[in-house]
């Protein structure tokens, strides 16, 4: 491992961290604007032109707010929980190729931090670890509603982890690799090669599970709006609460990258057009997260479990069996 590789990796890590922290902030701006427009409101308007600097104002507020540790909490776990959420969200980004490789000043840059050959497994695993943020935060909070929300969140996460894994198994069998770069190469031949045409069921299942993984409406059970409080985040304030937020939005962005990379051809042949295509697809999936939040109600936890174990999981298994049979003969 030479020094140049090390420097390059560090730079890439910093760039990904900075870009997606900023994007998480801007994501909240887009969310407010899109929701507002869909509900015939204007959204943030006063800070900066069209309220664009609202993100900065929120950032200043979160950073300068008092960091309250309530008296009955388990302090160390309470303090570390938001870090887990944010850190795992960004760690998952290490195996995602955000753009095709390009040449900058005669130096070839691979916009992926580490092209490990178990990419998807790594991403799913790390995202699964992200569960510990809300779970530990809720359990350490000494607040019954936080605890309930954490329990609910854990149940949803674990159930949908199953659907995510099983739904993605069929495409993995077809591609024969776990690296997202190989997935992209498999679909590089154009729209006809996209995995969505051969695996539409897996695509739908993965998409549904993505909503549960990121805890977004209609599966927004982790911070239950019906309880009027913010679920596991009730006792948090200031930047610790902000870290939960950054984690959630960064997760949304990463999932929005992963879905097109897995099913919709990713960046295609690696040309500039392909790169823009990937960004466009990512934007659509991110927009869809906001869109559903404006349009759909939340489902009940028991309905969610019913949907997962009695509907989605059997379909995923059947999908795998059929894929296997087709590949065998």
């Amino acid at each position: 491992m030479d020094i140049a590789y090390l420097i390059e990796t560090v730079i890439k890590v910093v760039v990904v961290l900075l870009i997606f922290s900023a994007l998480a902030g801007i994501g909240t701006y887009f969310e407010r604007k899109v929701l507002a427009f869909m509900q015939r409101r204007l959204g943030p308007m006063y800070v900066g032109p069209f309220g664009l600097l609202q993100v900065a104002a929120d950032g200043v507020k979160l950073f300068t707010k008092e960091d309250i540790i309530p008296s009955n909490v388990v302090p160390n776990i309470f303090k570390i929980a938001p870090v887990i959420t944010a850190a795992t969200a960004f760690m998952a980004a290490a195996a995602i190729p955000f753009l095709p490789q390009f040449t900058l000043f005669g130096y070839t840059v691979h916009p992926i931090v580490a092209d490990i050959n178990i990419g998807i497994l790594y991403i799913l695993g790390i995202m699964g670890v992200g569960l510990y943020g809300p779970l530990l935060g809720g359990m350490a909070s000494a607040n019954k509603f936080s605890l309930l929300s954490a329990a609910r969140g854990a149940a949803v996460f674990i159930s949908y982890e199953v659907v995510t894994g099983l739904s993605i198994l069929a495409p993995i069998m077809m591609v024969g690799s776990l690296s997202l770069i190989d997935f992209n190469a498999y679909q590089a031949g154009g729209i006809g090669d996209w995995i969505i045409w051969s695996q539409p069921v897996a695509f739908i299942l993965f998409w549904i599970a993505a909503f549960a993984e990121t805890g977004r409406t209609p599966f927004h059970l982790i911070a239950n709006d019906h309880e009027i409080i913010d679920g596991f985040g009730t006792e948090y304030s200031g930047m610790r609460w902000g870290l939960f937020f950054i984690g959630e939005y960064a997760n949304m962005f990463f999932i929005s990258f992963i879905i097109p990379l897995l099913f919709l051809g990713g960046y295609g042949d690696g040309s500039l057009l392909g790169a823009l295509g990937l960004l466009a697809k990512m934007s659509f999936f991110f927009f869809f997260f906001l869109w559903t939040r404006a349009a759909w109600p939340d489902v009940r936890p028991d309905q969610l479990m019913w949907l997962c174990w009695k509907v989605l999981m059997p379909i995923a298994v059947i999908n795998i069996v059929i894929t296997g049979l087709v590949m065998m003969f």
Partner: peptide, 10 residues
């Protein structure tokens, strides 16, 4: 239908 309604308003 729900998706279309909110998109139409937007």
């Amino acid at each position: 239908v729900g998706l279309w309604v909110v998109l139409r308003e937007m």
